[in-house]
Nucleic acid binder design. Sequence first.
DNA 1: CGATCCCGCCACATT
DNA 2: AATGTGGCGGGATCG
Length: 880
Amino acid sequence: ENIFDRSRMAPKTPIKNEPVDLSKQKGCTPERNPITPVKLVDRPQPDPWTPTANLKMLISAASPDMRDREKKKELFRPIENSKQSDTPDSLQYDMVDDSTVEEFEKQRPSRKQKSLGLLCQKFLARYPSYPLSTEKTTISLDEVASILGVERRRIYDIVNVLESLHLVSRVAKNQYCWHGRHNLSQTLKTLQEAGELQYGELMTFFQHKEQDLEYKFGERKKETIPDSQNRPLLDFSEPDCTSASANSRKDKSLRIMSQKFVMLFLVSKTKIVTLDIAAKILIEETQDTVDHSKFKTKVRRLYDIANVLTSLALIKKVHVTEERGRKPAFKWIGPVEFPGKTDNPTGHSPTSNPLPRTQRGACAPYQICATGKQRFTRHASFNNAQPCEGTKRKVSSEPNSPHQERQDEYCSKMINLAAVCRQKIEEDTSSPSITSPLSLLPVLGDSDFYVNPLPQAVFPVVQADVPNLSLPNGISSHALHPSMPAASKTENGKPTLLPNQPFLCFPSSSLFMLCSGLQENNMSETLPTTADVGNKSAEAQAAVPPAACQKRNSRKCVSPSAPADDEEPAAKKQIMEQSDVPLSLVVPKKPFESPKAESTPGNGRTSAAHLEAFHLDLTSPAAPEAADKESTKPLNYQEQEKWSQNKDPDEASSGKEHISKENANQPFLPQYLYVQPTAGLSSFNFLVSGNQAPGAINLTASQLPSLSIPCVVVPSAALASFPLVCSPTITSPLSPVPDGSFSAATSMNFSMSGLASTTPVFIGTTAVVTPEVSPTPPVDPEQPAHPTLHLSPVLARSCGAVKLDSPVQCMGHPVTLLKLQQPSSTPLTPKSIRPACHEAFFKTPGSLGDPVAWKKNEGNQTRNASSVQRRLEISSTSPD
DNA sequence: CGATCCCGCCACATT
DNA sequence: AATGTGGCGGGATCG
């Protein structure tokens, strides 16, 4: 019947040929349709339809409902086309025949005509983008479906996506309320924030690490609850918590997916997200297992979502050229900044930034844990977190600012990194067991580790959990101080990894991101042009008004001088902030993983690590902390880009501000280098932050670039399993060496955009923390402080290394250490971890206590339970 | 042939 | 049980 209908009905609609024109035209001249007798002949199934048609008619007559629907379907078009409709019924008949035939031929309804995107446009066309606040338009799914001549199912697809952006909301069965785009910016903002948290987590993770996580986590999930009240529309990813009771059904994946997808864009510096990456990131659950099919399905859904988003003019399709070829991708063309900015009225404002840094730290771990914890969650988080890709890709789409684009690309890469890595790995390793590292995490065949990635993070948390983050900080400071550094330093640059020194050990599978926030304003200024020239940047910094620096300091970095005092709380804060600033993402990619190897740092083999390509273009505007600027102009990313490029003073300044603001929230361009470990050999995985000042980084030998760079090198024991991260950048204004040199040496491209100081972050197994140095070295050269003290051994090491080139730099920069794990040697067992995480994580108001309840739910599954709960449930079950 | 993604089955949710 | 929702993936179509 459907077929008939369609054929019948559809034909009527002029849509096919030139939908627009014809329809309109037809309206005027309906008559011509009738003429062609051909219809019968041509039409494929002439016979059937006739009878059917009759039936239809009858049926419709019989049931009002049916009739309505049918009518609408049929009528609508006809109506549009022609006014004849006076006698709809009878006419329809005729018309149908005639028109049908013709159309039929013409149309050949191309698939495109029926595309979801087109449908969505039609749908959107029916409602005002900015409806009067007062008027509430309700949308009846049936009605719309019939009007648009599609099955309801399709409408659901559209509405679900729109709902995710709060353009509509469901009021009742079959009824949706149209809100229009009034809240769009707010929604996007929220999503951005949430996205930062979620996806940025990893990135952030390092940044704020301790503090943040907690908050994030807590905030995210918890916050929503309270906030939700306030906010009219927003529910993000995890709305469930709050409304848990209400939540019904499994989390509508399409909706959530849509939000996540959008988040990826918002978080992505480049604003370009490739489908495959998005799919990977969005895939949760058992990734490994099904993978392919699942991936495929996910991609399909993404297309659905993308079509709708495209119709909303939020994204556009582009292609990213990668090593392997071009990949489909989408670029965000919607608003980048949101007026609402800092906080939302809704109350839930503080997403990430607002939180006090101190507190944040605590959060972070949780988050991670949480994510890691459950399989689901874990996966999700995991996936989410990883942003970058190791590989480089180009965006072909824009000619304009290739340069930036690239940078952006990188950023995006980072973002995607994880995903990509995973993919690669997967691809590379066909064997399931080995599978991609990423995948590992979640599923991890090895139960032991499976927890690892996250767990580690968790660990700290757990320990600390009650108390606070502060602990870590304090600890860190202590720990760091140790004179260790000296030892660490190696003579030539080869960094030896000290077994003792633990940096990060991540299971190979895990990825980490560091975000190099880049610097603040300064950075941005310098960056814009070409990151390439380190010197310039340095100069620029110098040029930069101190005030700016101060500001920065005040905000994020407490005081430059602070560095010296690690002990001070301020330092802690600084850390946090700093963390914000520079982040780098790292993804470890390990071909194969051996848990043991991972755990044992062993000696770092100095085997040369490869530097894989990394370009780090740093150009990205620094993320200034300035977030607060009052200026809230929304910038388009484009503008920003331009701005950066152009560097007009005026604009720049303004731009900076904007950027800074935004950046504050988000990590910006991650600049990082990824070093890939050589495969079988022990290799070091490490990332270097791109920010580093060229000078700092002089790498003499390609061999051990790492040393020279203030980065952390992680030795991968057997494998390159440990990823590591490091980031800091040091910039050394003092002796900025053209990055070129650096790059040359290493073969990497660094652009050092950041001379600016980025604070380096280190992650160490030891929890350490970081004393901070002033964030802006250049600014306060005077008080370089002797951060070294604080520095962890590693740092020290790095510093030492650096020193060679520019000791000052090292010193000057604030370093942040994160403690990821304790000695890697003892991997946590998932189980053990789990509980803690579990609790911490999952407690949702509803869930809190009773497993029993959950159990019940299990039967039904999640109806009531919020998604979170569901997850929990799942996890709980699975663990057993 | 890979990228898209329409179509609609069917399971689950809600009424 | 009927109906609403929407996950899901086969397979058609596009490029």
